[in-house]
């Protein structure tokens, strides 16, 4: 048993069920074989019968969903989950082109300053941002986005691991391959501990970008669970990506 029709013997149960389910079976041989093999046709009918029996059994234990409409608690949670930051900023910036231009300049400076850990520009930019807040008026100025910090690390023996710790559901990690020699991580408000072959990232929130070098074997872990792996110039999303609280986006194309 469990041999392929191409061997001239029998088709295994998995391939028979794949035929029943319309899943792509390896090659056209199983169907051809079943049509001319009484034993395989019988086993296929057994699986069909078991499948119908299961469907009937499951239907017999079904109860109607009590959630015909979205519960109020869930609706409230959905409404609260909508982040108003962008629209709030747009309203504030609507006040005047000059203020908007100043805001843009300062935010660009902020991004540049914070991209360099330890940069003296950080305090200057922070003060400018605070001053800009007073120009906007209104009750309060929302939290200023300081822009991402970026840190790179070299592979060791052709391998590099990026370990993201303490990730929550506020974090969205985009992982991609790049044609550089170093792995790098860009994130807001994060702390980095780097050593050759390994980069540990903590306290990250918002959008994070992880770039793995195509020439190395790369692994990205979130809260200890491997979520993506790259090897041979290809990157794979691992099942662990669905089990961690953060959103994991693996860019496999391009």
């Amino acid at each position: 048993m469990n041999m392929h029709a191409a061997d001239g013997i029998h088709v295994d149960d998995g391939a028979l069920l794949a035929l029943i389910d319309g899943e792509s079976a390896p090659g056209a041989e199983p169907r051809t074989h079943v049509d001319s093999c009484d034993d395989c046709a019988r086993r296929m009918e057994e699986l069909r019968f078991a499948s119908r029996r299961l469907a009937g059994a499951l239907e017999s234990v079904d109860t109607p969903s009590p959630l015909t409409e979205m519960p109020d608690e869930l609706r409230d949670a959905a409404a609260a989950a909508v982040t108003p930051i962008h629209s709030a900023w747009r309203r504030r910036l609507r006040g005047g082109r000059s203020v908007a231009a100043a805001a843009g300049l300062i935010l660009v400076l902020a991004a540049g300053a914070y991209a360099v850990p330890g940069s003296p520009l950080r305090s200057i930019v922070s003060r400018s941002v605070d001053a800009l807040g007073s120009l906007f008026g209104g009750d309060t100025v929302g939290p200023i986005d300081p822009g991402p910090s970026a840190v790179g690390v070299d592979p060791v023996d052709g391998a590099v691991t990026v370990s993201i710790e303490g990730a929550t559901d506020d974090l969205r990690v985009t992982i991609r391959l790049v044609d550089t020699s170093r792995a790098s991580v860009s994130a807001r408000g994060a702390s980095f501990v780097g050593q050759p072959g390994r980069l540990r990232v903590t306290d990250a929130a918002g959008d994070m970008t992880v770039e793995l070098p195509t020439a190395a074997e790369g692994t990205v872990e979130v809260n200890g669970a491997p979520v993506a792996r790259s090897t041979g110039g290809a990157i794979t999303r691992l099942p662990g990506a669905d089990l961690v609280p953060a959103v994991i986006v693996v860019e496999t194309a391009g």
Partner: peptide
């Protein structure tokens, strides 16, 4: 690649 086989075994166990 193992899903079909695992499903078929599970179906037979159910039967």
């Amino acid at each position: 690649g193992s899903v079909g086989t695992l499903l078929a075994r599970a179906l037979r166990r159910f039967a």
